[in-house]
Design a binder for these strands. Sequence first.
DNA 1: CAACTCATGTAATGAGTTACATGATTGT
DNA 2: ACAATCATGTAACTCATTACATGAGTTG
Lengths: 192, 192
Amino acid sequence: MAPTNPATTLGYAILGLLARQPLSGYDLAARLKTPVGYYWTAHHGQIHPELQRLVGDRLVTYNTAAGPGPYAKKVYAITRDGRAALSAWVTEPPRPRPNRDELVLKAASLWLADPAPALALFRAEAERHAEQLAQYEATRASMEARYGERLERPDSPEFAEYVTLRCGISYEAHRLRWCRWVIARLEQAEAQ
Amino acid sequence: MAPTNPATTLGYAILGLLARQPLSGYDLAARLKTPVGYYWTAHHGQIHPELQRLVGDRLVTYNTAAGPGPYAKKVYAITRDGRAALSAWVTEPPRPRPNRDELVLKAASLWLADPAPALALFRAEAERHAEQLAQYEATRASMEARYGERLERPDSPEFAEYVTLRCGISYEAHRLRWCRWVIARLEQAEAQ
DNA sequence: CAACTCATGTAATGAGTTACATGATTGT
DNA sequence: ACAATCATGTAACTCATTACATGAGTTG
């Protein structure tokens, strides 16, 4: 029987985490909370129903464990079907999703803004990106020190994590350069 | 009376286009269609109701014109309140929205993939970005030739458009570099 | 004893996509 | 004649966020 596919991207995000280790819904929510999960986020309100669907499709199973509160704690694990669905999905071309970026949208109406608050906006954004970049670079340094040559093996989870981290670093650097370029343009125009 | 604010980002996207020139709902939909509108998209099914809301908030008005089909064509124009709301919004800090990126999510599970299809995926993505980059660069060249020094005046719509274009170029270049870096890593591992 | 973390669940709301619906004009 | 473009409107659906709801264990 062919493995059922989850259809939703969130389902694959969850499978991707469960492929590394079994986790509870709470732990999944913690990992999918900004900014820990590079480039995918979700709240527990979405995660729990999705897990129930994945269980229904036999892509994950769970073991009930003793836990606090009125509900039993469930530790979810990926099944063989789930792993097959996940590894088939990984190399399929990603569905194009629209790019929505509020800062760029604001930039498109920048000609209506006063110079001082416009500069303040881009300085604040530049600082945000500089901070995020610094944090990512620190993570990179510690990953490289800790894992060394394992980061060069494409079949290791550490390689995959490193690849996403490099994307984050590259993204933040691009954003920072762009913001600084805008700032320079605005300053130059103000000087005249 | 203080200007009502549209609350939705789409409302500001529409106001931003109407601040340049009056447009019909159809024209707005054409401009907000991928990939013409840099970094914001919408369909007419969302645009028409939003326009009605903006009319209700007195941020835009419309003139009915003769048009084909069962409905009268409406040409929308921004009001003084609309322009005020827009220029106030421009320099407010953007609300943080989650970054969702399916390719990066796939990359996080790349360790489960076979080398050949993984390479094919990133080569295809690299090509997509190279094409988009080439197209943006062509647009940039024609903009620079056509507008010249006006691109340096922050109070001109051309400057604002140029700024968003530069962001697009920077983004595609970042993506392309990252994809190529992943490809090189995968090729290197395969050679051994 | 108050606040925080752990832990799951549902419901309401909002944002976005796709599909359904109508119909005139223009170009092939 | 047929297809494409112009032109608006609504409804159904999916995805994501926020809020409501419960309650034990740990820390200060």
